[in-house]
């Protein structure tokens, strides 16, 4: 009896020691992985930031160790004085804002109708929304080009807004509709009994109640145009109608490499994005996970 209990306690001690040692190895491995991945993640980012402040023009002139070849802000002044950067910024801002606003108005109206009314062809319409959702809109690129040519929307900002809007609608309408289905009907029915018109109910009850999903979708539709390339490239031709993505791309084509100017321009756009994502990471996690669970 006694001997077995002694061996047992000895055994336990060895177990504890082993697990402490394992834990140390584990922690060391974890720290190693974290640091290694951080270096890989940060390396190109640091190089980009450094390039924005380093004298010179192309990537070939950039030092191997960032920030070791002098500091300058000339790329930023060059960007604002000698290129159309501000114009690109303004164009992109107009496109992104109008797309987001138009998407929200149309999607919330459509979603309200889908969620609260019954009508002929409702099922087939909803089915086509879902199916169109999956097809990337640029497979119809040539046709969109010709349609815009036909209605005079080529090389205009509103033409591009129409393209984005149409591309957004199936998905956003569906998302808002699903959200609205979970909002109790009593809310708007009470208003209807009080004699409110459908439009009033939409504006005063539905839109405020659906604010969370509308904010989320508003942000996503605002963000996409900033970095989209295919459609601006196709629709916008004249130099005064370019967007940020087109402009940045033009700095680093194969023929001429203005990497430092590109880095300066990219930095200005990327910083708001980064601040936003880092600040909202908690919300991002929950909304992503929500999408995973609910579908």
């Amino acid at each position: 009896m006694a001997t077995t209990s002694v061996t047992r306690s000895a055994q336990r001690e060895i177990d504890v020691r082993r697990s402490v040692r394992n834990q140390r190895i584990n922690s060391a491995a974890i720290v190693f992985v974290l640091v290694l991945v951080s270096i890989i993640v940060l390396w190109p980012i640091v190089h980009m930031v450094a390039a924005a402040f380093t004298p010179g023009q192309s990537i070939a002139q950039m030092p191997v160790v960032p920030f070791t070849a002098g500091l300058t802000t000339e790329h930023f002044t060059h960007l604002f004085n000698n290129t159309n950067y501000l114009l690109w910024f303004r164009n992109t801002f107009i496109i992104a804002t109008s797309t987001a606003l138009a998407t929200l108005v149309l999607a919330s109206l459509g979603a309200y109708v889908f969620s609260r009314f019954t009508f002929t062809f409702k099922k087939s319409f909803m089915m086509s929304l879902l199916i169109l959702n999956v097809f990337p809109s640029f497979v119809g690129m040539v046709a969109i080009f010709v349609i815009l040519l036909r209605i005079g929307g080529l090389d205009t900002l509103w033409g591009l807004v129409l393209v984005y809007l149409a591309g957004n609608l199936p998905f956003t309408t569906w998302m808002v509709k699903s959200y609205m289905d979970n909002v109790p009907r009593e809310l708007d029915e009470a208003a209807r009994i009080d004699g409110a018109s459908s439009f009033r109910i939409w504006a005063r009850i539905i839109v405020p109640v659906c604010k969370p999903i509308l904010v989320f979708l508003g942000i996503t539709s605002f963000v996409t145009p900033w970095m989209d390339f295919i459609f601006p490239r196709m629709v916008l031709r004249s130099p005064e109608n370019q967007t940020i993505a087109l402009g940045l791309f033009s700095f680093v084509t194969d023929r001429n490499n203005f990497f430092t100017t590109f880095a300066a321009g990219a930095l200005i756009v990327a910083i708001p994005f980064i601040i936003f994502f880092v600040l909202t990471q908690k919300m991002l996690v929950s909304s992503l996970a929500g999408a995973a669970v609910k579908g």
Binding site: P44, I45, H47, M48, W226, M227, F229, A245, L248, F249, V252, F262, A263, A266, V269, A270, F273, I274, F276, F277, V278
Partner: peptide
């Protein structure tokens, strides 16, 4: 994830 894809890919 936060940096726009065009930017990081071109870098």
């Amino acid at each position: 994830y936060a940096i726009p894809g065009v930017v990081s890919l071109l870098v």
